[in-house]
Design a protein around this nucleic acid. Structure first.
Length: 358
DNA sequence: TACTCGTGGAA
DNA sequence: TTTCCAAGAGT
């Protein structure tokens, strides 16, 4: 074990990546980077991290910001509850901890959006607490080093991984170990086709010796994902403003703005579905005009094919029956409202349409 | 335990 | 085009 960590740190000293948050010890910034990096690639995170650091340089700046600003900066990163939890936790630390980041992993763990991984990452990197931050990279590396033959989802597997990590850690600095393993996992010990020839740990890797490295870790097969047909209405009023709805809490994309609409049910055509959705969501009716565009998008558990139509109101004033809030906004104002990918594409196409006539 | 929650890049 | 899946958390 001692030899493994020695070989790893020797490799890390030479090959570690240069990243905007690498070497950072301000727990606020380490926290922000760790949250952004959850399920998200480094190359995607970097521009967001730099923007964030500029706009919200301190925990106090974040705590004082309006939620709309936070979501707008986050737009495009996905998993938007991360942004709301950052905001929430900043306010919580500001109020309950006097703005000082807690160091105790258990206390960190109790904050919204901080789970076991992130708590251990912050504690190890900022405060040298001796804990392994068990992310997907580290699990994969450990599973290969051990040639672990089962999926990693069981409690038994988690115990095995934790024991292996504790032994490997020994007296090494945990922040260095964690970041070294993550760099190795992202550049050498890749999920699909690991570069074992370049790996400093291959002499100690059981799956490499057994030739099973591409089969580790054993993954459970995932179920198929459905595709839904969806319609959306860009309702324009006499001032050239469009109706946006703020999505409800609890579902997808909470707090983000969208064009009203929804799923086309079985045996419905687009107009029928759209009129039904507008009635349910806004308590009014519309006239459906020309098609703005068609959009394909893949979420984690389903795909959608969205068709958006230019519409006008044909009934009483719309009410926010399901949305948190509704608002008439000009095309120019729309970029100031945080949206998911599909609605942003619709908004973009709307802006490219020039003068609009039904 | 298993499912929900986004998006984009790579193969 | 499709599939995979990335520094996970919450329920």
């Amino acid at each position: 074990m001692h030899e493994i960590s020695h070989a790893l740190l020797k490799w890390y000293r030479k090959h570690q990546r240069s990243l905007p948050w690498r070497g950072e010890i301000d727990p606020y910034l380490v926290w922000v980077s760790e949250i952004m990096l959850q399920q998200t690639r480094v190359d995607t995170v970097i521009p967001y991290y730099l923007k964030w650091k500029k706009r919200f340089p301190t925990l106090q700046a974040l705590a004082a910001a309006p939620e709309g600003d936070v979501l707008l900066l986050w737009e495009g990163l996905g998993y938007y509850s991360r942004a709301r939890n950052l905001h929430l936790t900043a306010q919580l630390i500001h109020e309950k901890y006097g703005g000082v980041f807690p160091q105790d992993p258990n206390r960190l763990r109790s904050l919204p959006g901080i789970g076991e991984y992130t708590a251990n990452a912050i504690a190890s990197i900022c405060f040298a607490v001796p804990l392994v931050a068990m992310d997907a990279n580290i699990k994969r590396i450990f599973a290969r080093l051990m040639d672990f033959e089962e999926p990693l989802t069981s409690q038994f597997a988690k115990t095995q991984l934790a024991n292996f990590g504790r032994t490997l850690l020994g007296e090494i600095n945990a922040g260095d170990l964690n970041q070294a393993l993550m760099d190795l996992g992202s550049s050498i010990c890749l999920p699909g086709d690991p570069n074992c020839e370049l790996c400093p740990l291959s002499p100690y890797c059981v799956s490499h010796q057994n030739g099973t490295q591409t089969q580790r870790p054993v993954m459970k097969k995932k179920k198929e994902i459905p595709t839904y047909q969806v319609v959306a209405a860009a309702i324009i009023n006499e001032h050239g403003e469009f109706l946006l709805a703020k999505r409800p809490k609890g579902g997808m994309l909470p707090g983000l703005w969208e064009f009203p609409g929804g799923k086309v049910e079985a045996r419905e055509d687009d107009p029928t579905a759209l009129l039904r959705e507008i009635s349910e969501e806004l308590g009014t009716s519309i006239l459906i005009g020309k098609k703005i565009g068609g959009y394909r998008h893949a979420y984690t558990h389903f795909r959608v094919v969205v068709r958006a139509y230019l519409c006008t109101l044909d009934g009483p004033a719309p009410q926010a029956l399901e949305a948190q809030e509704i608002k008439w906004v000009t095309r120019e104002q729309m970029q100031g409202f945080a949206m998911g990918k599909v609605d942003r594409m619709i908004a973009r196409d709307l802006c490219g349409m020039g003068s609009i006539l039904l």
